[in-house]
């Protein structure tokens, strides 16, 4: 359908400051790669009003590496993520999430900032960002603040971002790189496992998404972080499930963790899937991942 564009005002600044000035005035919304916004516009569901197009703001682009963090500008696209050599090594779940988001054309245009701000519980990058302990940098005329991403989503499509704030950067704290599976099971080191279940194998919105990061010391789970998509009103940071793993030998903790996860997810029925299926699959896939790590198998990826 054709939207009536005369009711939309757009500015296209190049300077970050100018963006912040507009947002500070109130009543302005952000336009980045447009892969969510333009769909909404086409469905005549985008509220008419004022939009700041940030696509040309260079300060929001680029991936920088320091000793203790990798910092990605909000306009970092899925294609940028996949191409980055260090992300491939240290943050493979994010790279995998990017590879599995939409298809090539969407990956060239969709941004991390947009994916986070859009706050869909089905979004693919959030589970990985949650499992990696990402930090968001929000800018506004009032200043810059940093937030643990795990605290960002507060309810369905509700976040801690104020209307005058822009998501400027996503920061990934660098930790040990994930280890390859070893025979007899990983006893020491970090293991990452990412899963996305969609209705088809490409260009699918997740029915269940899962990012699991485990840090093992002598077969005991020293730390665990689990992010999940499409199983709650928000991208789920599964704290209870992680707690059920922490401090226990992995092999002994699997069933407790799986049970905790079954309680922690609160999926719904919609046109894409059923609550029952989502819960069952989320649980199956988590069990499978944990069992594989514990047995030293590469988990067999789902079809």
């Amino acid at each position: 359908m054709r939207a009536d564009l005369s009711r939309f005002e757009v500015v296209r600044p190049r300077a970050l400051d100018e963006v912040l000035v507009r947002l500070g005035e109130g009543g302005w919304s952000v336009l980045a790669g447009g892969t969510d916004l333009m769909v909404t516009l086409g469905a005549l569901a985008l509220p008419p009003g004022r939009y700041v197009d940030v696509w040309r703001v260079d300060a929001l682009r680029g991936i920088t590496v320091t000793d203790d963090a990798i910092t990605m500008g909000a306009l970092t696209t899925y294609a940028d993520v996949q191409r980055h050599p260090l992300l491939q090594v240290e943050f493979p779940m994010l790279v995998e999430a990017a590879r599995r988001s939409g298809a090539a054309a969407i990956q060239n245009r969709g941004t991390l900032g947009g994916n986070i701000a859009n706050a869909s519980p089905a979004a693919d990058s959030p589970p990985a960002l949650l499992a990696y302990g990402a930090v968001l940098e929000l800018h506004s005329r009032a200043g810059t603040r940093r937030l643990a991403y795990a605290d960002f989503h507060t309810g369905y499509k509700q976040t801690l971002r104020r209307g005058d704030e822009l998501i400027a950067r996503v920061i990934l704290p660098r930790r040990a790189a994930a280890a390859a599976p070893v025979a007899g099971g990983v006893r020491d080191g970090v293991v990452d496992a990412y899963r996305k279940i969609g209705t088809r194998k490409a260009q699918a919105i997740a029915k269940v998404g899962l990012a699991v990061r485990l840090e093992l010391q002598g077969g005991v789970v020293a730390d665990a972080a689990i992010g999940a998509a499409s199983v709650a009103p928000v991208p789920l940071f599964a704290r209870t499930t992680a707690a059920a793993l922490r401090g226990r030998p992995l092999a002994d903790a699997i069933e407790a963790a799986v049970a905790a996860f079954g309680d922690e997810v609160t999926p719904i029925d919609d046109v894409r899937s059923s609550a029952r299926y989502r819960r069952q699959v989320a649980v199956n896939v988590l069990r499978d991942v944990l069992a594989a790590v514990s047995a030293g198998r590469t988990p067999v990826d789902s079809l």
């Binding site: 336009l31 969407i106 245009r109």
Partner: peptide
């Protein structure tokens, strides 16, 4: 770069 022209606002093509 490959894109979907139905999702690209022309203002971004300057």
């Amino acid at each position: 770069v490959l894109v979907n022209a139905c999702l690209v606002p022309v203002g971004q093509c300057e």
